[in-house]
Design a protein around this nucleic acid. Structure first.
Length: 234
DNA sequence: GCGACAG
DNA sequence: ATCTTGTCGC
């Protein structure tokens, strides 16, 4: 499975970075998000067994009410250590498996991590989009690269995230007295769309609903949804 | 060379 | 990410 997700990767660190540069050229930053998404999914990853097991959680929400429709938790053996800038090589295989176990393909995907706000413009959300072709949005709790002025204290206030003279994302104050979120388009979305969608998916918490719910599942917190029988789609 | 460094 | 209770501040 991993060899299909990372086709052409020789397994080395240098090879991973080279692959990122090739895939980054395939990132589409034009709007491909349906006007009214029927479903929106949230993805996040957690670990068990001292990190030996990677646990990916995916939640499927109704597009307008953001009510939970379905969810899945998939476990796969951890294959790589965490290397700053190469997060997708560690977590993407589990995320793709979780996508395959959702009852239907979502119209929009929100991933916990960077979109193009990455040294080579291929954070895990962008990589996820290039691999699946689905519109994706990256919402991270911390910055990986780039600088930004602190956004004002009011929810909704935002400032551009700049790296090497270009805007790669936004710092968004999603909630009063909380550190800003770092948001950036992943695939099939514009820079402005990333900001607008993140704001539209907030429901009073620091994290947008899709990511917030996936986070609770991946980290084994909060009420766990009923496990509907799991069978892969395709 | 030194510091930074998603999860 | 994960190990972990109470605690300070709003």
């Amino acid at each position: 499975m991993t060899r299909h997700v990372f086709a052409g990767w020789d397994g080395s660190i240098a090879g991973a970075r080279a692959l990122q540069e090739r895939l980054a050229a395939r990132v589409v930053l034009e709007d491909r998000v349906p006007a009214a998404p029927r479903t929106i999914a949230g993805f996040d990853v957690g670990f068990e067994d001292e990190g030996h097991t990677t646990r990916a959680a995916a939640v499927l929400l109704e597009g307008t009410s953001l009510q939970l429709i379905a969810s899945t938790v998939q476990r796969v053996p951890t294959s790589m250590p965490y290397v700053p800038g190469l997060l997708s090589f560690r977590e993407l295989p589990a995320l793709v498996q979780a996508l395959e176990f959702l009852p239907q393909v979502p119209d929009l995907v929100v991933v916990d991590g960077q979109g193009i706000a990455h040294p080579r413009r291929l954070g895990i959300a962008a990589h996820f989009g290039v691999v699946t072709g689905l519109p994706t949005l990256g919402v991270a709790k911390q910055v990986l690269c780039g600088r930004f002025e602190a956004p004002g204290p009011q929810p909704g206030e935002h400032t551009p995230l700049i790296h090497r003279g270009e805007q790669i994302g936004w710092a968004l104050r999603s909630k009063l007295r909380c550190n800003p979120l770092i948001v950036s388009p992943g695939f099939g979305m514009t820079m402005d769309g990333a900001l607008a969608w993140t704001r539209a998916l907030l429901r009073g918490y620091r994290l947008p609903e899709p990511t917030r719910l996936a986070d609770r599942l991946a980290s084994r917190r909060g009420p766990m949804p009923d496990d509907t029988p799991q069978l892969p789609l395709a």
